[in-house]
Design a protein around this nucleic acid. Sequence first.
DNA 1: TTCACGTGTAAGAATTCTCTTACACGTGTC
DNA 2: GACACGTGTAAGAGAATTCTTACACGTGAA
Lengths: 116, 116
Amino acid sequence: MTGTRPTGDELVEVLAALSNPLRLRIVATLAGGRDYVSNLARVIGVSRPLLHMHLQRLEAAGLVVGSLELSDDGKAMKYFEVADFDFTLTPAALAAAVPTLTTPDPHRGPAREERS
Amino acid sequence: MTGTRPTGDELVEVLAALSNPLRLRIVATLAGGRDYVSNLARVIGVSRPLLHMHLQRLEAAGLVVGSLELSDDGKAMKYFEVADFDFTLTPAALAAAVPTLTTPDPHRGPAREERS
DNA sequence: TTCACGTGTAAGAATTCTCTTACACGTGTC
DNA sequence: GACACGTGTAAGAGAATTCTTACACGTGAA
């Protein structure tokens, strides 16, 4: 995964996933070792449902990986760990990714000239 | 600016600024050469007020630089160009930035344990 | 004066994001 | 059975983003 040239859409998803303080904190914490959801929520100091949502976002972007495991006492634990991603953000790198953006049409129409 | 270790807050602002398809397109376009607002709006195909807003966001994040200049025929033109930024996104880099995040208190309180 | 072209900004709607609260299910232990 | 601890998800409020439309001002040319 390291050194991969992301498509425009992938890049936007990754950047959006990392542009949140809490998610940044989640990744940073997981960088120190894998952990399961409930415990991670306690460590970071966030409610479990909230953490659950953010982990989904991070996993969708491919920044963390989760795996459901069974503990010795039969409990279903969901462990998460960071993926070893490596993205470079430079004007040139962005320019290379932009051509592969799938029309992010503003809202309705693709803009017309102002002042008819 | 290249190779600088950003603070957590700076990093969040930069990532938020780049996590939008249109802003990514703006940076990519400016990477091909400086331009003034009205023309850039035509080139990209977006309304000028909208472009103006996005440029503000990019400039606030330090990704583009604007300068008001007077053209030969006396018009005030605002030219923008990309800053030569270079950010590295790896688990380790993020972990290094996170400690400098200024309390991004969720919403109201700092979360309490669930299930009283 | 009027038109073309540059600048900036404010008001409002539609959408998305963030977060809390509440519910559901399963398993091992007291 | 009741409790502790793990999982997942849905409903709703509040705030932030994104975008359009409309207005303001200034200068040179017809």
